[in-house]
């Protein structure tokens, strides 16, 4: 284990991570549906191990403006998790949540900012509760933090965290569908090296 690169270990077990992602996203969608008080469907999430230099290409390019909600993980699994949406989609999420008609506008007011943080908080925590129950572990989640900036700048945070153990990052794309529109959101899960072992061991693959 020690000598083996985390990238190859993760690639070997990517199906398990996909399954976890699928269940986690399913749980998150249920939470989102009750939060928005409307039906939300989800397609099967796309799980990829990406080179971190390619991640920003998946969300509109390095300088595209995105919103990222970051939570720190502690307990049996340590690391970070992030929920990411494009700025336009962030506006739509917030407008749906606050029951406002969607109209183009710049920036986020204070209430919109905290609403968006809460969306990220609920989605990540429902994802993490699936992960915790599947792996029979305890995962504590820190207070969520929101940042809206260039994609690369925001992604540098999980990329650096993962850069300590590998050159790739676990990237989960899920497309949510409400009655009226499609919105896609992304999760990035970055457990530290010992936590990968915890996850794989608890699932009986190591």
């Amino acid at each position: 284990m020690k000598d083996k690169k985390i990238d190859s270990i993760v690639e070997e077990h990517v199906d398990i991570l996909k399954e976890i992602a699928s269940i986690g996203c399913g749980n998150a969608v249920t939470a989102l549906s009750s939060l928005l008080n409307r039906r939300v469907k989800m397609s099967v999430p796309v799980v990829n191990m990406l080179d971190f230099k390619d991640v920003s290409n998946c969300i509109g390019g390095a300088e595209n403006i995105i919103a990222g909600v970051l939570v720190g993980l502690s307990g049996d699994i340590n690391g970070i998790m992030m929920f990411i949406v494009d700025e336009d989609i962030a506006h739509r999420f917030v407008d749906m949540l606050l029951g406002k008609p969607t109209e183009p506008h710049d920036g986020f007011s204070e209430i919109e900012y905290s609403a968006l943080t809460e969306v990220g908080n609920i989605l990540t925590s429902s994802y993490l509760s699936s992960l915790a129950s599947l792996t029979r572990t305890t995962i504590n989640q820190s207070v969520p933090q929101l940042s809206i900036d260039m994609a690369n700048a925001i992604l540098s945070v999980p990329a650096i965290e993962f850069g300590k153990v590998g050159d790739k990052v676990l990237f989960i794309e899920s497309v949510f569908e409400t009655d009226t529109e499609n919105v896609s959101g992304y999760f990035i899960l970055v457990p530290d090296m010992p936590s990968f072992e915890v996850i794989f061991k608890s699932l009986g693959v190591m």
């Binding site: 971190f52 230099k53 920003s56 390095a62 300088e63 900036d149 260039m150 994609a151 690369n152 700048a153 925001i154 992604l155 540098s156 945070v157 990329a159 650096i160 850069g163 050159d167």
Partner: peptide, 22 residues
């Protein structure tokens, strides 16, 4: 790119996009 480096000579220029904590 991220975790990348390059060199050039005048009149060339180099750019890197979206430095965060990097």
């Amino acid at each position: 790119g991220m975790a990348d480096l390059n060199v050039t000579k005048a009149p060339g220029a180099l750019t890197t996009l979206g430095l965060g904590s990097c």
